[in-house]
Each structure stands twice: as C-alpha cells, then as structure tokens.
Nucleic acid binder design. Structure first.
Lengths: 166, 166
DNA sequence: GAGCTTTACTTGCGTCGTCAAGTATTTGTC
DNA sequence: GACAAATACTTGACGACGCAAGTAAAGCTC
C-alpha cells in the first residue's frame, strides 16, 4: 500500500495469473477427492504419513513433519490426533528435548501408506505429469521453487530425507 | 487402483512435485494474509467482488461468479451472504430465469474493490511475477492451463468478461 | 540457581467450507 | 397441460482450520 503508482498486470500476466489461480484452487480438491474416495483420508493426512514413512525409524518431530507436509503446527497437532485415533501414528516425547513430541508411524500406518500410495501416485501422474512434457516438468520445477521461496521462505531442505519407501 | 504395476515418480518428478505442492499450499495463505491484513477480506471474497466489478452492470449469475472465482456454489452462497451483510453485494432474482440469482456489486462494493486492488496486485506481483522471468511467465501460463484443464475440465472461457476496471 | 525469554507444541473458540438434503423454477414428454 | 426430470441455488449439520492464548521444557543471564 505504498504511495507509488500501481503497476497493473499486463494482458499476458492476467491470463497467466488466472490460469495459475485456477490450478491452485482445484488441484488440492482433486487430490483430496481421490484420497477420500479410495482411502478415506485427506491429502494432508496422507502427506504426514508419507513423510513419516520416508524417515529412518519412521519417526519425526512434529515440527519437522509439519514443515515437510506443508502444514502449520496447530493443524498438524489435530491431524495427528485423528491419525492416532485411527491407530496409524503414535506420539511420544523426545528423549533429547522434553519440549518436542515425536510422531511415529505404526505398522498399521505403514500398511495404510503402502496400500494408498499407488492410487495417489497415479492421480498425481494423471493431473500433473501426464499433461506436461518432460521439458515442462523441468520448467515447473524451477518456477514452483522460485515462487515457493517467496511465499514460504523457511522452506524445507533441498533434499528429502532418505526415501526408504514409496 | 487398477491392477497395473505402479509407475513411481522419478527423482526429477519427485522434486518437481515437492516444489509444486509447497507452492500450492502456501500461495493461497500468503494472498489471504495480505488481504486480511490490509482489507479484512479473504482472497475468495475479493475474487467474487473483482469478478463482479469486471462485469457489465456489475452483475452476474451466482454460478458464473462461482466459475470465475473458482468456488463451488455452497461456498459462493455463504460468501455472498457475508458480502451482503457488509453492504458490498446485493442479490436479486434473474428476470430471465426464476431459478437463477443475480449478484450485484453495490457502489460501496465497487469502492472496496478499488481501494483493495492495488495492494492485492502488488502482492501477486511480489510473489508470482517478480521472481519469474518473462519467459517463465509464458511457460507457467501454458503449464497451469494444461493442469487446470485436467483438474477442472469445465473451466471458464479463455477470455475474461469485458475488463471495465481493475 | 532464580527468573526471564524462547521454543515446541496443544487447545478453546469462532469462522469457514463441504456434503447432503431441501426448495423453487424451468424444461421436456406424453 | 400435467408430471417427471433437470437446473440453480440455499441451508442444516458437521468437521476442519486458524488465531491467539495456554502449558511445559530449555536456554540464557546475572
């Protein structure tokens, strides 16, 4: 809200913005819908379990999970409540730091991820990768990285934790 | 969930997907935050009013607004409730078709859009266009269009309604 | 080592969004 | 023209999310 003259979007920018806004609105809905239909979980719940499944010991601090799954702490806390009730995750205090809570994926949780991953990956492929060329995938990677750096500066490390599974 | 072998994501695809997921999660939050801070409205509320402001007569059918603002009907209905309470929008029955409802932007609503647009556009510029090159904007346009076609097939027309304002 | 600050969650409360069901109007169909 | 089906919303019930406040452990300072 500076006093400067507003730089309105050009025609090209408007169209790009409109396309982006549409994608950003609907993509999460589609992913949620598939997971809800075939696994009875939300995309965020899946992300939480998937991140845990990729961690050594299937264990991570709440805040780490949150960062990787793109969710703030209150949201994560309630989500882990639900996952705990369903027997897929358990909490235990971090022996290293009494303030921290560790989330642990149970065997049942592991099985749930393994059962759910193929359908989810297929959906991601269908809506994101199949419509794009290999070149566009690289372009998207760069573009999304740049935007994400601005919208969420304290983003996650460039390398994911040991992928020991799906 | 076919019986076919799962085609897991390649390393490149995983990274691109991770970057995209981050962007898709945080971008809406950042835009909502700016509008909430500076105008006390959500991004969806702004979109609804902005679409109306660009329409001739500042009037549109609910379902049209919903399509342009990327929201389903129940959401739109409640959003217009709120905007109506704040005096920015009014409803009236469509004389052409008694089932339809027309949403009309009031003068106060128009003023609100005019007052809010500069700050919002600046934020969109800051998080989307400033970090990208002109080439990347074109690439993003094409990529987002392709993905949106899959996630929301009954998308909106390629051309926006007469932009008679912001 | 007492006390203030910071960090890492958790939770109460209010709002928002979605699903399913309900209402009103229009559009065939016979 | 009467009745079923479709369309265009609206609404009741309910779950999820975010903000701000609360709790508990660590860390720092003197």
């Amino acid at each position: 809200m500076a006093i400067e003259e507003t730089r309105w979007l050009s025609g090209e920018e408007q169209q790009a913005w409109f396309a982006l806004a549409g994608m950003v609105s609907w993509l999460p809905d589609v992913l949620d819908a598939q997971l809800q239909r075939e696994a009875g979980i939300t995309h965020f719940e899946y992300s939480v379990m998937a991140m845990l499944s990729m961690s050594p010991e299937r264990t991570m601090r709440m805040s780490e999970v949150g960062a990787l799954a793109n969710g703030a702490l209150p949201r994560l806390s309630r989500t882990v409540d639900r996952l705990e009730k369903r027997g897929w995750v358990t909490r235990r205090p971090d022996p290293q730091d009494g303030r921290a809570t560790l989330a642990v994926l149970t065997d049942a949780g592991w099985d749930k991820v393994v059962a759910t991953a193929p359908g989810h990956v297929a959906e991601v492929r269908r809506v994101v990768f199949d419509p794009l060329t290999k070149t566009q995938v690289r372009q998207l990677h760069e573009i999304a990285t740049r935007i994400r750096r601005v919208v969420h500066p304290d983003g996650c490390p460039p390398t994911l934790p040991e992928p020991s599974a799906p």
